Amino acid sequence: MHSFTRYAVLLLCGASLGLSSCKKDSSDDDATPEGDGIVTWTHNNVTYTDKITAGAVVDPGDKIFILAGSKDLNNVLSIPLLGLSAKGPGVYDLPKGSALNDYSVGSITLNGADGKSGATYTTLYGPNAINGTVTVTEFDKNAQKLSGTFSFTAGATPLGNGSGTQTVTNGSFSIHKFH
């Protein structure tokens, strides 16, 4: 899971750098950059909205990763959903388990903009048997559309920099392009 979080941070940093290096016409000053979708969530009473680096990565198996980050990339969100192609829209539990289990997982990395010192929290190490849910309201793999809501409580990953738990609430996603 730790290496995936690094991959997510690198992916988000690369997308941010790629989008920020584009030349901007003076007529585009008020335009909002278009990304692959939008992800919104609340953590520690702060609401984050990612329209630039938010997206979905399709795993060769039956897993899709929803990825997003705060503007400064100090809060990176990752939600791999297992069995999405087979099950389709519905409620996906985020259970307690281990990194060896192949579950749907909610995770957040805090203070991880440098890609190596952040504290990672995942639902696999949360306090309960079920530590959150993702409700998928729309999924069309061919049209590359994925939307829904989420919330979870995640525990610090073993041997990581964090301690205790972190709670993510009021999460929503609407993705219109997969990678």
Rank of each mutant, 00 (worst) to 15 (best):
G90Q: 09
Y92L: 02
L84A: 00
G90I: 07
I108W: 05
P80R: 08
L94N: 01
S104F: 00
L100G: 13
N111K: 14
N101M: 12
V91Y: 13
K71G: 06
D102Y: 04
I79N: 00
S78P: 07
S70K: 12
A86R: 11
D114R: 13
G83W: 05
K96V: 10
G112M: 01
G97F: 09
T109Q: 14
L77I: 02
S70T: 05
N101G: 11
G97P: 12
S98T: 15
A113I: 04
D93S: 10
I108S: 00
V91M: 13
L110W: 09
D72L: 02
D114A: 09
D114G: 10
K71I: 04
L110E: 07
N75P: 15
N75H: 15
D102L: 01
L73H: 06
Y103A: 04
G83A: 10
S78D: 05
D93F: 07
S107F: 04
A86V: 11
L100S: 14
I108N: 01
L84I: 02
V105P: 06
P80Y: 05
N111M: 13
A86T: 15
N74A: 10
L110P: 10
S104L: 02
G69Y: 06
P95D: 08
S104Q: 04
G88I: 03
G97E: 08
A113R: 04
P89W: 11
L84R: 01
S78Y: 11
L84C: 00
K87D: 02
G88D: 09
L94G: 05
N111D: 13
L77V: 01
G112I: 00
L77Q: 05
N74Y: 12
V91T: 13
N111G: 15
K87A: 03
D93L: 08
L77P: 08
K71T: 05
